[in-house]
């Protein structure tokens, strides 16, 4: 994983990003995984848009009373727009892992830098259909 933002993740966030990335690798695309302290909090699975996957994950986490403050987000593929990091930030997510590769990666990175999120780029896309 490569650090993309000015803010570096905590050691726990790094661990959680690896945990979440392993889970998202084995989840049907489009997939978003939210995790904290080596535990799955919620995932969005098999959606036709990444935003839908994220919103499904956030809604599930809330339904089971998880506080997403300080949780991490992993995505199975890059973010085509900065909307996902914005929605995640507003839900309390503090660190984001994704494979990178969008021509608009910088827009997501800029959003994270402005709002104090850490982001790591894994370099490995994990589509699963």
């Amino acid at each position: 994983m490569r650090l993309a933002t000015t803010k570096a993740p905590s050691a726990q966030e790094v661990n959680d990003m690896v945990f979440a990335t392993i889970l998202v690798k084995h989840t049907k695309s489009n997939a978003i995984v939210l995790a904290k302290d080596d535990r799955l909090l919620a995932s969005g699975t098999g959606q036709t848009s990444r935003v839908d996957a994220l919103q499904q994950a956030i809604a599930k986490a809330h339904r089971f009373n998880f506080d997403l403050t300080g949780a991490v987000m992993a995505s199975d593929a890059f973010f085509p727009f900065p909307d996902c990091v914005e929605i995640a930030h507003k839900a309390g997510i503090s660190a984001v892992a994704h494979p990178g590769g969008s021509i608009r990666d910088q827009e997501s990175i800029d959003y994270c830098n402005t709002h104090g999120l850490a982001m790591c780029i894994t370099g490995h896309r994990h589509f699963k259909h």
Binding site: M1, R2, L3, A4, A8, P9, V14, N15, V18, T21, I22, K25, C120, T122, H124
Partner: peptide
Amino acid sequence: CGCQRRLHAP
């Protein structure tokens, strides 16, 4: 891909 618990700087 060998997901690893490591972090590389830009």
